[in-house]
Amino acid sequence: MGVGIRRAQASDRDYVVRLLDEAFMDDPVSGWVFPDVEHRRARHAGLMAAFTDATFADGYIDLAEDGAAVALWMDIPGAPDTPDEPLGPSEGSSDDGPAQVRAAVDPDNERVEQIARLTAAAHPVGREHVYLWMIGVRPDRQGEGLGTALMAPVLERCDREGLPAYLEASNARSRALYERLGFVFTGTAVDLPDGPSLWPMWREPQAQ
């Protein structure tokens, strides 16, 4: 049976936040950002809300029709002045977005800002691509192929339009899934200080 997918609307915002909060509560990266369990339960949803609002503003969110899975996507433009520039990491940005998120979500927690800056610095620049910011599946529905189904339409679009795709895998299980879908580890992990690693992964468009 196929998985019905629809584009999330503003009216879905609170549901998307709750779903991401549940899906990532026990993720290794969330555990690093909020090491204390009780503090995580109090603040984690606020971070998911910041991600959701940013995606509604600049990207798009796909939601399984039964509400069990969600994907946050961004279309990232290429560098107009250097169209032939090879793929490489960002050299950093003066954007104060990470500091603003920290101030709004958990002002005393430097890790909220730190992870945003580390992932931004690792993000490839120079080529137009599609960025899978987050994909979350309700814990009781994981292992059913919902993540793969939710990604399929966007990856098909990438193949059709000749667009690469990019993401950061936050655990070994998700990394294995993305490898099956054609993503390749870029070779440089984002190692969180005294914490887990994220694996930046790139997917060239596949021949149809």
Rank of each mutant, 00 (worst) to 15 (best):
residue 47 L to Y: 01
residue 47 L to N: 00
residue 49 A to N: 10
residue 51 F to M: 15
residue 51 F to V: 12
residue 52 T to K: 04
residue 54 A to D: 15
residue 55 T to S: 11
residue 55 T to E: 15
residue 56 F to A: 08
residue 56 F to N: 07
residue 57 A to F: 10
residue 58 D to P: 05
residue 59 G to Q: 12
residue 60 Y to F: 14
residue 61 I to Y: 05
residue 61 I to R: 02
residue 62 D to P: 03
residue 62 D to I: 03
residue 65 E to R: 04
residue 66 D to T: 02
residue 66 D to I: 04
residue 66 D to R: 01
residue 67 G to W: 04
residue 68 A to K: 08
residue 68 A to I: 02
residue 68 A to N: 09
residue 69 A to G: 07
residue 71 A to E: 02
residue 71 A to H: 01
residue 73 W to H: 06
residue 74 M to A: 12
residue 74 M to E: 14
residue 76 I to N: 10
residue 78 G to E: 12
residue 78 G to V: 09
residue 78 G to K: 08
residue 79 A to I: 13
residue 79 A to P: 05
residue 80 P to G: 05
residue 80 P to F: 05
residue 82 T to W: 10
residue 83 P to H: 08
residue 83 P to K: 06
residue 84 D to V: 11
residue 84 D to S: 15
residue 85 E to S: 14
residue 86 P to F: 05
residue 86 P to I: 05
residue 87 L to T: 07
residue 87 L to D: 07
residue 87 L to Q: 07
residue 87 L to F: 07
residue 90 S to P: 10
residue 92 G to D: 11
residue 92 G to K: 06
residue 92 G to T: 08
residue 93 S to A: 14
residue 94 S to F: 12
residue 95 D to I: 09
residue 96 D to N: 13
residue 96 D to A: 14
residue 97 G to K: 14
residue 97 G to S: 15
residue 99 A to G: 15
residue 102 R to L: 07
residue 102 R to D: 03
residue 106 D to N: 07
residue 106 D to F: 02
residue 107 P to D: 13
residue 109 N to H: 06
residue 110 E to I: 01
residue 113 E to K: 00
residue 115 I to E: 01
residue 115 I to A: 00
residue 117 R to W: 02
residue 118 L to E: 03
residue 118 L to R: 01
residue 118 L to K: 00
residue 119 T to S: 09
residue 120 A to Y: 03
residue 120 A to L: 04
residue 121 A to N: 13
residue 122 A to H: 11
residue 122 A to C: 10
residue 123 H to W: 06
residue 123 H to E: 12
residue 123 H to L: 08
residue 123 H to S: 11
residue 125 V to L: 06
residue 127 R to C: 10
residue 127 R to I: 09
residue 127 R to M: 11
residue 129 H to V: 03
residue 131 Y to L: 10
residue 131 Y to I: 04
residue 131 Y to A: 06
residue 131 Y to P: 05
residue 132 L to K: 00
residue 133 W to N: 14
residue 136 G to S: 04
residue 136 G to D: 03
